[in-house]
Design a protein around this nucleic acid. Sequence first.
DNA 1: ATCAAAATCATCCAAAAACAATCATAAAGT
DNA 2: ACTTTATGATTGTTTTTGGATGATTTTGAT
Lengths: 250, 250
Amino acid sequence: MLTAKRHALIIEQLHKQASVTIQELVNLMDASESTIRRDLSELEKKDLLKRVHGGAMRINDTHAEPSYQEKVGQQTREKQKIAQVAADQLNDFDVIYLDAGTTTHAMIPYLKDRNITVITNGLMHLPELERYQIRTYLIGGQVKHKTGAIVGTVALKQLNAYHFDASFIGTNAIDERFGYSTPDPEEAEIKHKALLQGKRRFILADETKLNTKSSYQIATLNEATFIVDKLSKSMRTRLEKQTTVKVAKS
Amino acid sequence: MLTAKRHALIIEQLHKQASVTIQELVNLMDASESTIRRDLSELEKKDLLKRVHGGAMRINDTHAEPSYQEKVGQQTREKQKIAQVAADQLNDFDVIYLDAGTTTHAMIPYLKDRNITVITNGLMHLPELERYQIRTYLIGGQVKHKTGAIVGTVALKQLNAYHFDASFIGTNAIDERFGYSTPDPEEAEIKHKALLQGKRRFILADETKLNTKSSYQIATLNEATFIVDKLSKSMRTRLEKQTTVKVAKS
DNA sequence: ATCAAAATCATCCAAAAACAATCATAAAGT
DNA sequence: ACTTTATGATTGTTTTTGGATGATTTTGAT
């Protein structure tokens, strides 16, 4: 039997079983002990299993889908709640703009099987969008490697060519008077433009962003519906004088 | 038996089996070991299977996660050579178009520290481009998740907004009469448009693509300089009647 | 806890299998 | 006629394999 095939079989076996003995493998594949031992050594070197006396054990770091698992781990419950509320604003067949960033990222699982088309400037969204087989258009322009977003004048111009049923924009700060803001002027421009191209307009933030200001304004409060995970009663009253507010039910 | 028929049979077999031994194939097709070995080598070069000691394995098309690292590993010496020749055509401060695909991917390391700006439709290039800190612009448009490329009418239109000092395009096939071609009509259009927007125009292919045709024409021979790793004397003579040819020194 | 038997182990070796490279021949293409 | 391509045999080299060896770990009985 082919070496590669034996390796595949061993891994498959460990997928079912959590552990195998050398003898099991010898019988299964009709190879000598020596051969199986060698196989296990090699597979261990590749971190595909853990050798133990008498056989091998499955390694349990869910190497299957690391990027997804990792990100879910990082995704706080707050962002999940915000994403849920944002997703409630969607209709089937909507064409939406999804801003770069982790808060909007959490919305992606909710888009599944709803025939929604996504336009985005966030490269970080692409693997997840592929995972759920969502039709996706990327804004063109300069790649900001550090943040994985598309920015710049080209991107700004390209946004003119699109119109969305709804825009979902993340923000770094929200202040009662200064409105929504972010530390990067280029991103502020993009976010504002993308917001305006949407028929229904949403800005997402978690409560830690309340009553903070960054240098560059994205939009004033009245330009979008504000979605947040938690909000004090008094703050809510004051904000609602200027805009619509959606709060996650806790 | 025809070479092409053997190749088709091998692929078919791997479609059923995940792995085959050379002996199995020898019996199946009544050809010598030498011949089968050659077949496997060629098919591996085309990324249609993976050779292993004793036979070959199916290539796992579910490029879920390890795709990036793996592909770098799979970068054949041939592609390296082609990339080297292509890189020789560059000037410092050039603005170039880099087509999606593995052959053009191999060029990226050569762009380092030359103040070159890259415009591309290939999402697979981005990690590598970031690694070498190369200024990058992405064409906007529909994301073709399966291949990691940007395609469609939007992308086509966006290309109008750019002009390049040089375009580097990959091809699936090159035929003396039909010119360069590829199996996907959308990609063919993008490739052609991107080629035309370049002042200096290059099409890259390895020798396995010689004398083959795909359904959709990218360009005629005279529209670009042809870069290849290997070329017979007579073929070279014939091609040079229609276009400029650069061959890697072996 | 201690010991001895049994099981498992790493290492080494020689035979077998698979390999790349080369050659001569034959077939196909120009 | 001449080149290019495809093929199968041969060569010497490399990789894989299974068994032998003695060391190490586990087991179970004391």
